[in-house]
């Protein structure tokens, strides 16, 4: 009986560890799966906040990008500077 209980306990512990390690995490927050229909308000807020990018990786958004090419050209004339044109398939500031 004790042996059975030990095996059961070991099995439960292993299962719990596997469950824990397979749970997706974002900034230390467990991310729910589709089977979870609603989230408590606090968990909703924390997860929503964690998804939005922040920190040092966002410094490029502080650059005063001009999104109108004619405006950028006019600015270059006025400020006597060359243009640096970041042109991608999908807007660099709005797409991946």
């Amino acid at each position: 009986m004790k042996k059975f209980a030990a095996i059961l306990l070991l099995g439960m512990t292993t299962f719990a560890s596997a469950q824990k390690s397979s749970t997706p995490m974002l900034d230390g927050l467990a991310v729910p799966g589709f089977e979870v229909k609603t989230l408590p308000a606090e968990r909703f807020t924390k997860l929503h906040t964690a998804i939005a990018p922040s920190g040092a990786g966002e410094r490029w958004t502080e650059i005063p990008w001009v999104a109108d090419l004619q405006e950028a050209r006019q600015k270059a004339v006025t400020e006597k500077k060359p243009l640096l044109l970041w042109i991608m398939d999908g807007h660099p500031l709005g797409c991946t």
């Binding site: 090419l69 400020e79 500077k81 060359p82 044109l85 709005g94």
Partner: peptide, 10 residues
Amino acid sequence: EFVPYAGDQW
């Protein structure tokens, strides 16, 4: 030193 512009080439 530059005027930085970003745009979608599409």
